[in-house]
Structures are given as structure tokens and as C-alpha cells.
Design a protein around this nucleic acid. Structure first.
Lengths: 145, 145
DNA sequence: GCTTGACCTCAACTTAGCTTGAGGTTGCAT
DNA sequence: ATGCAACCTCAAGCTAAGTTGAGGTCAAGC
């Protein structure tokens, strides 16, 4: 391990599997911060590997960048999450997963009851009314699940 | 029931819960077809209520419009799906749901094993490697699950 | 000292599934 | 015959999470 622990962006990309452009994008979003060389090149701390890994994992678990931002913002001064933070955060993530599973199971059961029925009557069809929370919410694309 | 069964777009919107603009969009995508009055206004068949309902239900089950298009294209000459078609189509939908549930359960279990670990070490973390199929796929936004 | 790969910024593009707005026409009831 | 809601067509905009490209700079090895 060399004297200074500062990583250029390409190195960080190789270490995390992210693309360089994605890391720059995250910096723009405020999810990571970077020091700069005199020549304006980014230099990251080793801890940022961990921070980005956290982002990656949280993403896989279905959190949006906005939600991740919020989770990270809950930590004092951009600290990288440690085991204790992780424990706290993972609790709420677990709940999300449970909810999703429950919702899918409900759908599956409705579907089973519906096969061969073919009614497709809105208002009456259990499937159609199975899970009201996927309704509309504001503008933009309808929530892509 | 009046003599002609042709519905103007607003009526169809009210009957299905879709917005007028969404129906026009679906027509553009080729998911529904419309007759036109001499004054160029759309007139839909009653059966299109059912067709649109099918689209709505399929969407809730996680199919994209492209997939729905495909499913509907499998039917001769833009026929509205009946009970038999529905049975066939619902089989593959059920599989999708099962797969999603399985994948979430795997994640939940990994998460449980991970709480308190906090390692967040890529390459080693079971959570990170839990479900490789959520990888990248071409351009555009990463698949939003 | 020079080449070359890694880096920089900024703007525009991507996909999905629509919505919104401008500017104009239709069709039904009175 | 007229008023007015409902309809029409386009074009542009929205969100999310980045990618791609143009045009230019940096830094490290030879």
C-alpha cells in the first residue's frame, strides 16, 4: 500500500464494477464526493469503494437513488456506513422485500383463481383489483415495477 | 343498448379508467384500433373495453407494453382475448410471478444472513452476488425493478 | 520533450409510458 | 344557427439512471 490512498476515477470504477460515467453521475447527485488534483482530476478516498458498494447493494434491493441518498444523508457528515448503520438500514429494506413478496403472492393467488375465468371485467375481477397500491402517482411514467 | 355500439374515446376512457391520452397512445402503439367518423373522430367497438382491460391487467402483472403487444399479436387478426387465450397467456404470467417471488426470497434470506455483518465487500458479500440476473442489459436506464 | 491513455466538462440522447399544451375542428343540444 | 364540450393532431416534456460524443487537458513513461 502506497503512501497516499487517493484513487483516480478509473481505479474506483475497476474496483466497484461501476462505469466511470456512473461514478461521475453519482458525484453530481451528491452520493459521493471527490477531492481534486491541481489539474482538476478527481481523487477518491479508499472508503468510497465501500460507499459505492453500499449504493450498488441498496440498488439491487430496489431502492432508488433518491432513497439511497436519504439513507446516506441520515449518517453524520457523509460518513461511510458501518455495520451498525447497516443493521438499522437493512431493517427497513427487509420490510420492503417482505411487502413485495406478499403482494406478489396475493397476485399469484388471484391469478390462480382467475385462470379459466377469463372474465376480465374491471370492477369485478379479483386480479384487477388485487393490489390497489400500484395506482397512479403524479406525473412522469407510471411506476414501472 | 342503442343501435350502434360505437364508443367515443372519452366514453372508453370512463369505462376503463384510462386517460384519453393513454388510449390514444395505445392506438399509436398498435394495441387498439379505432374506426373514424366522417369528421375524423375515433369510434371504438365495445370489445375494446375488454381489450383495454386486458392490457391493464397484464401491465399490473409486470408485462411491458411490448410484451403485451406480442401477446395480443399472437391472436388472429387483433381478436380480443377470450377465456381460452387467457388461460394460455396466464400460464406464462404465473411463471414470471413465481420467479420474482423466488428471487425476492433469496434476497431476503441473504439479507438476513448479512444483518450485523456489514461487510459490504463486493466479491464476497452474498447479498451483492445474490441474484446475478439483475445485471446490465444494453443501453438506456438500468432495468428499474 | 513528447506521446498516449486517462481524465475533464457539457450537452444531448436513451427507454418506457405516458402527460401537457397549443392551436384547431366536430357534433350534439338548444 | 349557435354554443360549447368533446374531439383532433403534433410537438415537447416528464422521470430514472445513466451513456455517448465532442472537444479539450493532464500526467507519467520513455
Amino acid at each position: 500500500m502506497k503512501a497516499n490512498d487517493l484513487l483516480p476515477i478509473g481505479e474506483l470504477a475497476r474496483r466497484t464494477g461501476l462505469s466511470v460515467s456512473a461514478i461521475r453521475f453519482y458525484e453530481e447527485r451528491g452520493l459521493v464526493e471527490a477531492l481534486r488534483t491541481s489539474g482538476n482530476q478527481r481523487r477518491f478516498l479508499r472508503g468510497d469503494i465501500r460507499r459505492l458498494s453500499f449504493i450498488l447493494i441498496a440498488q439491487r434491493l430496489g431502492l432508488s437513488l433518491a432513497e439511497i441518498e436519504e439513507a446516506l444523508a441520515g449518517l453524520p457528515q457523509g460518513r461511510t456506513p458501518n455495520a451498525a448503520d447497516w443493521k438499522r438500514i437493512s431493517g427497513s429494506i427487509r420490510k420492503r422485500i417482505e411487502d413485495q413478496i406478499a403482494s406478489l403472492e396475493k397476485m399469484r393467488d388471484s391469478l390462480d383463481g382467475c385462470i379459466g375465468c377469463g372474465c376480465l371485467s374491471l370492477k369485478k375481477c379479483a386480479l384487477y383489483n388485487a393490489d390497489d397500491k400500484w395506482g397512479e402517482s403524479g406525473t412522469g411514467p407510471r411506476v414501472l415495477r
